[in-house]
Design a protein around this nucleic acid. Structure first.
Length: 674
DNA sequence: TCACGGAATATTTTT
DNA sequence: TATTCCGTGA
């Protein structure tokens, strides 16, 4: 066994962003303007061009670690410093966290005018516009946003009503149906095409699937439901069909910037196009090599098509990497070279140091975990704080064993991505009660509430819902429900709950407390692990305290839910404590750490076994590996357990990821630990 | 009509 | 492995 004790290079001089000397030949704007920020000293020539060329369409191809966020931040500051009204600047990002971070940074750079810049995701921006203008396309603006789980329950309800499952042949499950529908919307394909291409085994029941799809659409309209896709689709429709609204919106945003453009889909590109109808001051930033959301309909070709959409486009490429040491870049360049389709660019760095990446085979999953834990302890001892270390993986559950080992060693960590606490049943139960207060004809939530009660099944729930709905008196309809012997108890408590809500106007948090009071006995009865779940609910309550508006709270829970799993014992209260980061690769996008571990770098796990027979999916897995590896600044460590039996395929997985295979030892060092 | 248990089945990533 | 689906007995 080879010792892997000394594989780390600990950088004693933490990396600081180097200032860049401006070359002679750079042209400065002719006009004499005074700027407080020293753009020329703090940015490189390409970045300066991106930051100071404000008018007209611009495409920035930004390689990993090339200062993309920095460029956007400085550009926001530049616009504001020039006197552009912050409200006339729109910054569309992939998560709200990303836009908030950029605006905070711009604020530090300049002043707090930057905080008033409009920012958010395509979904949240669409939502805010639809709340204002929904009536123009025939919708009520008091709609409820369905998340994936809600959408699937609605599909499940219709599926049951149509009794499609009871026919002798297997009918797709609600989750599969949800995937089919969403895919068709996001990829602009017909449902037929999606089924033929991706679910050929369901082609014989295509008629039924189409009927269900139709009913799903109708049912959403009937109940004022918008699913994620609808937010984009209907906003696009609004812009397309109503020139007056389009002009109003597009002329109010003088400058638009879009981050992570490689992960937008065709509807988003269409929205962007219409948003720029009044003026074409639009900059998009992206990297085709980092496109990792094709499964959600994203199309990295949007980047290539951008200059076609805006013929005057100026293209700027950022190729200097400020993040990783050369040895890491050498490896990541090899990885991305294997991609079949890409804009060609070669990243370089002037940053000294960095250690050669290593890959470690381990005997079992647990020895992989113990290896990682041991290395983390070592690093920590040599002065690298935990928050500068991350462990990345392909799928949320890949870290379960590691989490146990970390807890054993009392290493505090935070987990990002994977299973979201907002999706767990008890949270959804509580939210359902709040949702019917907001929208009393929310059928999904009523069913959810009613089915929690004893002796009430689907049929009774349906009857009760119909009664409430025909009463047309909001949730008060529940008061008219007649008792039936034996099942009145649950209903009585429910009525009591709603009458408490009725008593007086309440704050969001007070409503939450009322729900929790009502729900506590149900929780205890339903779940064996209720203490843990009760803690989650307490956490939800603290989130609610930040809101003074129920609609805003419910919207945020649907569009920007907390992305971390809450149940880690150490997270407690201290916000600035030093914690290790565990994250899915998707959730690690845009971030960086001193040392990055990528676990389960095992062929069949990463790339996932499900991607192996599709050229396209395999390409996406490759880009995903590229994204993961380019997060590292100093140390990059891959690990994979040996001899893993995969139940679903009956195969034994024992080779390292094909993306890391056959790479010379001087670029990727190979070890084995037992 | 509900609750429960056995059988089938898909299995990741996220707004 | 865990969830979802379906049939059966109460």
């Amino acid at each position: 066994m080879i010792s892997v004790k000394d594989i780390f290079l600990i950088n004693k001089n933490p990396y600081t962003i180097s200032s860049y000397k401006m070359p002679e030949q750079l042209h400065l704007p002719d006009y004499k303007e005074h700027f407080n920020i020293k753009y020329e000293e703090e940015l490189n020539p390409s970045q300066i061009e991106a930051v100071t060329s404000l008018d007209g369409p611009m495409l920035v191809i930004a390689g990993a670690g090339s200062g993309k966020t920095r460029t956007l931040t400085y550009r926001v500051a530049r616009l504001v410093e020039k006197g552009i009204s912050p409200a006339a600047i729109l910054l569309l990002t992939f998560t709200r966290k990303a836009s908030m971070e950029m605006l905070t940074r711009a604020t530090k750079l300049l002043d707090n005018r930057c905080e008033r810049v409009s920012g958010g995701t395509f979904h949240s921006f669409s939502n805010s516009m639809l709340r204002r203008y929904a009536s123009y396309i025939g919708f009520d603006n008091k709609y409820t946003i369905l998340d994936r789980v809600d959408a699937e329950s609605l599909i499940g309800m219709i599926r049951k009503e149509l009794a499609l499952g009871s026919k002798k042949r297997a009918f797709p499950r609600k989750q599969t149906l949800g995937n089919i529908f969403s895919r068709s919307v996001n990829k602009a394909l017909s449902v037929e095409d999606v089924v033929y291409d991706d679910y050929p085994h369901f082609t014989h029941i295509i008629e039924d699937i189409l009927i269900l799809f139709d009913m799903y659409k109708n049912r959403k309209a009937e109940h004022n439901f918008f699913d994620y896709d609808d937010l984009l689709v209907y906003f696009h429709l609004l812009l397309k069909n109503h020139p007056d609204i389009r002009d109003r919106i597009s002329s109010s945003y003088k400058y638009i910037m879009v981050d992570e453009y490689q992960d937008t889909n065709h509807i988003q590109a269409g929205i962007l196009y219409l948003l720029t109808s009044a003026n074409k001051n639009v900059m998009v930033v992206g990297d085709d090599s980092q496109s990792i959301y094709a499964f959600r309909g994203a199309n990295f070709k949007n980047i290539i098509d951008f200059p076609k959409m805006f013929p005057e486009t100026r293209i700027i490429t950022l190729e200097e990497n400020y993040r990783s040491g050369q040895p890491i870049l050498d490896l990541t360049n090899v990885i991305i070279d294997r991609a079949a389709e890409k804009y060609s660019k070669k990243l370089f760095t002037r940053k000294p140091g960095g250690s050669t990446p290593v890959i470690i085979g381990t005997r079992s999953e647990n020895s992989q975990s113990r290896f990682v834990v041991e290395k983390i302890l070592q690093l920590n001892k040599s002065g690298i704080s935990l928050s500068r270390i991350a462990v990345l993986f392909r799928a949320g559950f890949h870290s379960f064993d590691l989490e146990i080992e970390l807890a054993r060693e009392q290493i505090p960590f935070i987990k990002v991505g994977g299973f979201k606490f907002i999706e767990s049943a008890h949270i959804k139960d509580v939210l359902a009660h709040l949702r019917v207060i907001y929208n009393p004809y929310d059928r999904i939530s009523w069913y959810r509430i009613l089915l929690l009660l004893n002796k009430i099944g689907p049929k009774t729930a349906q009857d009760i819902y119909e009664a409430i709905s025909s009463e047309k008196s909001g949730y008060s309809g529940i008061f008219t429900i007649k008792h039936k012997a034996g099942r009145s108890q649950g209903i009585d408590r429910l009525k009591e709950f709603f009458s408490t809500i009725d008593l007086r106007p309440m704050s969001v948090a007070e409503m939450g407390e009322t729900v929790l009071n009502y729900y506590a006995p149900i929780l205890k009865d339903k779940y064996d692990d209720h203490p843990k779940r009760a803690r989650d609910l307490e956490h939800l309550l603290t989130i609610m305290q930040r809101y003074d508006n129920l609609e805003q709270f419910l919207t945020d829970m649907a569009l920007e839910p907390p992305n971390t799993s809450i149940d880690d014992t150490f997270s407690a209260d201290s916000p600035d404590d030093d914690r290790l980061v565990l994250s899915t690769v998707h959730s690690a996008k845009g971030l960086e750490w001193h040392t990055v571990f990528i676990i389960w770098a095992l062929d069949g796990r990463f790339p996932s076994i499900h991607a192996l027979n599709s050229e396209e999916e395999l390409e996406e897995e490759l880009r995903l590996m590229y994204v993961a590896a380019t997060r590292a600044k100093e140390n990059l460590v891959f690990a994979y357990p040996n001899q893993i039996y995969d139940r679903s395929s009956g195969m034994t997985l024992s080779r390292p990821s094909r993306f890391l295979d056959m790479i010379p030892g001087n670029i990727l060092e190979k070890y084995y630990v037992d």
